[in-house]
Simulated scan of single mutants.
Amino acid sequence: MLATLMIASAVSPLAINIFIPSMASIARDLLAEEAIVGLGLSLYLAATAFIQLLAGPLSDRYGRRPVIIGGMVLFMAGTVMCVLAEGVWLFLAGRVVQAASATGIALSRAIVRDVYERQRAAAMIGYVTMGLAVAPMIGPLIGGTIDTAFGWRMVFWLLAGIGALTLGLLFADLSETNPERGKPIREQFKNYGELFAAGAFWRYAFVSALISAVFFAFLGGAAFVAVNVLGMTPAGYGLWFALCAGGYILGNFLTAQLSEKLGIKTLMVAGSAISMSAALVSSGAIAFGWLAPLTVFGPMFFVGIGNGLATPTSTAGGVSVVPHAAGAAAGMLGALQIGMGALASFAASLVATRYGGPLGLFALMSAFGFGSLMVASSARRASTA
């Protein structure tokens, strides 16, 4: 099921990124302000966080398979709403419904934890989350190219086709992995109480959220720097952005190879340190006047490596603290990642455009990386730390 889970976990981040180059086109076509169309990103992120909180307990009650399939069906419905929208509000409603695909992110991790023990789960999550890297790598470039050639609605037709393919794979290939399903929803939500009381869970959760914030901050501010400061085209931005995604793929591959040998804490600390250091390198280069695509995007390769080391290991640790609540834990981890990412993206856009420019952007990223490093260093090596 590994390839199927990789694809299912990639649909949601692909839908986040692929429409970004089309926001101006959508605003013109739907006679709406660009700021209103921009809500298609922030509302999607907010809905993604909420859905992941809900998906965990539902999957603990009814099973992983029906919940992840149901989320993909809703994604298809939301995509059709966007394609058929003649006004901005139907389009935004479609974006919110599309966010149901986030069940693929949360539950793919829970499924891996159902099947594998803790250290091995970190390795397998490393493989699964490679899908999260491929999507942002190709999304903006594909979206911008299709919009230019065929219009923005064709971008959403492509998403519909990808959703249909994923749905077919889930029906054909995904088996039920939750052996303890069947408890009432009220009891399942009590799992959140156990997680809230577990200090170890919060250490893993904050490493996961803060290391993700480094990436989301770049996502929120780099477009302004690339287009308005460096004069890059959307296609050029997409090509340079592939460095970050390539690093993330490499980091996940290294996690899959090294997690059982080195342990979760070692890779969390190493990933946090690498991401923080890479952001500091960009800050230093910009402070000395070396502002160029290479100094903005080059270190992001190493930020990607750091994320690839720290994200799957912190996720595997988080879903292992309370094993019978793996679904709830996966949902909460995903919600914290996306929630922190939304805040980081918004803060970075303000910093990059108003308060600090490129130097302020990378200083903010360095701060998130430092926070992740401090929390990762405080974790113990024991599985219940």
Rank of each mutant, 00 (worst) to 15 (best):
A10Y: 04
N17H: 14
S22R: 08
S25V: 03
A27N: 11
D29R: 14
A32V: 12
L39R: 12
G40Q: 01
L41M: 07
L43A: 08
Y44D: 05
A55W: 01
D60L: 03
I69A: 08
I69T: 06
G70D: 04
V73E: 10
L74C: 09
L74P: 03
M81C: 07
M81R: 06
L92K: 06
R95W: 07
A99H: 10
R109Q: 15
Y116A: 12
A121S: 15
A123K: 11
M124D: 05
G126F: 05
M130Q: 14
M130E: 14
V134G: 10
M137E: 12
M137A: 14
L141I: 09
I142R: 11
G143C: 03
T145I: 08
I146G: 01
D147T: 14
A149P: 02
G151S: 06
R153S: 00
M154G: 00
G168K: 00
T177G: 09
E187Q: 11
F189G: 00
K190V: 00
E194N: 08
L195I: 12
L195S: 02
F196S: 11
A197N: 07
A200Q: 09
W202R: 02
S212M: 15
A213T: 04
A213C: 12
V214W: 11
F215Q: 03
A222P: 01
N228S: 10
M232V: 03
A235T: 13
Y237H: 04
Y237C: 05
A242Y: 01
A245P: 07
A245E: 13
I249E: 13
I249F: 10
F253Y: 12
T255R: 00
K265G: 05
M268R: 01
M268N: 13
M268D: 12
A279K: 01
A279G: 06
I286A: 02
F288I: 09
F297W: 03
M300G: 01
F302L: 15
V303G: 03
G306M: 09
A310Y: 10
T313C: 15
V321Q: 13
P323F: 10
A326K: 06
A328K: 02
M332Y: 01
G334H: 07
L336Q: 05
S345D: 02
A348W: 05
V351N: 05
R354T: 05
Y355T: 07
G357E: 00
P358G: 02
P358F: 05
A363K: 03
F370M: 11
S372T: 02
S378F: 00
S378M: 13
A382E: 15
S383A: 13
